[in-house]
Simulated assay, not measured.
Amino acid sequence: MSTFDYAITRTLDAPADKVWQAWTIADDYGKWASAEEVVLDVRPGGAWSSVMVLPDGTRIPLSGSYVEVVENKRLVMGMDVPGRDEPVLMNLELAADGEATKITLSQTFDTAEDRDQAEQGSNFLLDSLTAHLAA
């Protein structure tokens, strides 16, 4: 069976601990990720949930758990997907680069369509995160 994956790498103008906080503190995450009702239990096996609010007002409930947590360096998050037995994993890698941080988001999917949709979503998230950190 073939798999379809993507990896997006960007350099953010903020230290790694600030980028980490943006992903792991519920209030911070909600601000930049257009999410409400954010609950983050950031530890291996801990659950997360949020409601993503799209620009048109559509609300999408999301949930999952944390698989791997290495503070200021690596988060592996599983996302529950209706109709799938196993969660879809998203890998987030942070690498300090002076006062900047290199961030890489990556995922693997069964179909090109799912990959393309997730990659578009990840680019949107990274655009929002970049704007949040610059503010």
Results as ranks from 00 to 15, higher is better:
127 D>L: 02
44 P>C: 05
91 N>H: 05
69 V>W: 07
15 P>C: 14
76 V>C: 12
41 D>A: 08
1 M>Q: 06
86 E>P: 10
61 P>F: 02
54 L>Q: 15
16 A>S: 04
94 L>E: 04
134 A>G: 05
58 T>I: 12
86 E>S: 13
125 L>H: 00
106 S>Y: 04
23 W>R: 00
121 G>E: 00
121 G>W: 00
22 A>Q: 04
50 S>M: 11
115 R>M: 06
20 W>V: 01
5 D>A: 15
89 L>C: 03
74 R>E: 15
96 A>E: 11
46 G>A: 10
14 A>N: 06
48 W>Q: 07
49 S>H: 09
52 M>G: 11
68 E>V: 10
18 K>G: 06
39 V>W: 08
131 A>F: 07
45 G>L: 06
67 V>K: 13
75 L>P: 05
33 A>K: 02
67 V>P: 04
53 V>C: 10
81 V>P: 01
14 A>W: 04
75 L>N: 04
24 T>D: 06
99 E>A: 14
77 M>L: 13
128 S>M: 12
44 P>Y: 12
33 A>R: 00
62 L>P: 02
31 K>H: 08
111 T>C: 00
97 D>T: 10
82 P>M: 14
103 I>Y: 08
102 K>L: 05
25 I>N: 07
36 E>T: 13
5 D>W: 11
47 A>Y: 06
74 R>V: 13
60 I>T: 10
84 R>I: 05
116 D>C: 04
117 Q>W: 13
27 D>T: 15
120 Q>K: 02
19 V>M: 02
58 T>Y: 06
69 V>F: 06
